[in-house]
Design a protein around this nucleic acid. Structure first.
Lengths: 194, 194
DNA sequence: GTGCATGTTTGCACTCTGCGCAAGTATTTT
DNA sequence: AAAATACTTGCGCAGAGTGCAAACATGCAC
């Protein structure tokens, strides 16, 4: 993160990281296949927290409600801080966005698993894979959309106001999803935000 | 594609591609930044076709209906063939899935633009960015989910039966999205498929 | 403490990527 | 035909990523 801040993405080598960490280049590669995965681990940690929250929700609850609750947990300073910083650097940077994409995708896979488990217990009925995957993918997409809009609007600001804005965006995106995108005007958000 | 087929992903170098194409390694890099983007261009072409169809739809039509129509156009042998082959190779391969992810993401961005244009004309009202991005992202996710399920089920088979299966999956995924995922049982697809 | 076993770190060497540069070769314009 | 423009290529270099074997550290038994 220090190197990212000072030199900017793409302007330092693995050797620099190794030196800064007091280890050899070779040792770095023993633990990480590339700089990308190191950086992705930040986003990964962020999304892991959401996953964790999701799994804690009661099994009977509607998935969308669980997702909403899990996502809202993310709108907390300590949690968003690292990813906000990454985002602000990576908005235009192909290398960063790539590893972020991968992290979001990985999260989708995990949500699919979590949701499958939830449905499996209870009914012996066969699970509709399409339902599962389409829903999980949409949830992640909506979460990502909320984050994107938040960054565009607040530029990663961590003030309480900004964070409550993020919370509201996450909630709104889930209700859009739950209402089937109300199939009409896109100019009326469900709620006014200050 | 020949090299992919014969040697498998990751088992050939840019030099091999250049040689097979009768050009120099340097010339390859004049046109493509990496092997990845070459491969991504296949998926890219596939999604471009959907985009194109989407843009052809009447501006008054509900977005989800336009998306459904655009996606269904993809379920045609000539169009799916290349991507089906890629998918069957890339299922387990990190390098391939990565470039595919990027292509899908790029398509999301383009749908957002297309949808924004559509809404912009007509009303002078400010557009809800969250609505736009969440919807576009969800559409893409559902399309991807349908493709994933199809591959899991049919393994990229191009027979008429298999393709009509794909068509139905695409339609189903859009109606799931349109109905807000009916927030109940995941075990009842909207329609029986042979 | 000595010796041994297991695990980690490192240097070395090598292949491959990606790209700047300048020289070469086509193609088109005038 | 000469000049302008576009495309291709070879060369050289910095950096990624990895196998291998030597060096080093740590823990354990005696």
């Amino acid at each position: 993160m220090d190197l990212l801040r000072t030199r900017g993405p793409g302007n330092f080598t693995v050797e620099d990281i190794a030196e800064a960490a007091g280890i050899s280049r070779r040792t770095f590669f023993n633990y990480f296949a590339s700089t990308e995965v190191v950086i992705a681990s930040v986003t990964h940690g962020f999304l892991d927290k959401a996953l964790q929250q999701f799994r804690l929700r009661p099994a009977g609850e509607p998935i969308l409600e669980s997702a909403r609750a899990a996502l809202v947990e993310l709108a907390d300073p300590m949690t968003v801080a690292p990813i906000a910083e990454l985002y602000s650097m990576g908005q235009a940077n192909p290398m960063l966005s790539r590893s972020e994409l991968e992290a979001w995708d990985h999260c989708t896979v995990e949500i699919i698993d979590a949701a499958r488990e939830r449905f499996a217990q209870g009914s012996g009925v066969e699970i509709d894979e399409l339902y599962l995957r389409a829903l999980a993918g949409s949830i992640i997409s909506c979460g990502k959309a909320a984050m994107d809009v938040w960054f565009a609007r607040c530029g990663g600001d961590l003030s309480p106001d900004s964070l409550s804005n993020l919370r509201q965006l996450l909630i709104d995106s889930m209700s859009l999803l739950g209402s089937g995108f109300a199939s009409h005007s896109p100019a009326t958000p469900s709620q006014d935000r200050h």
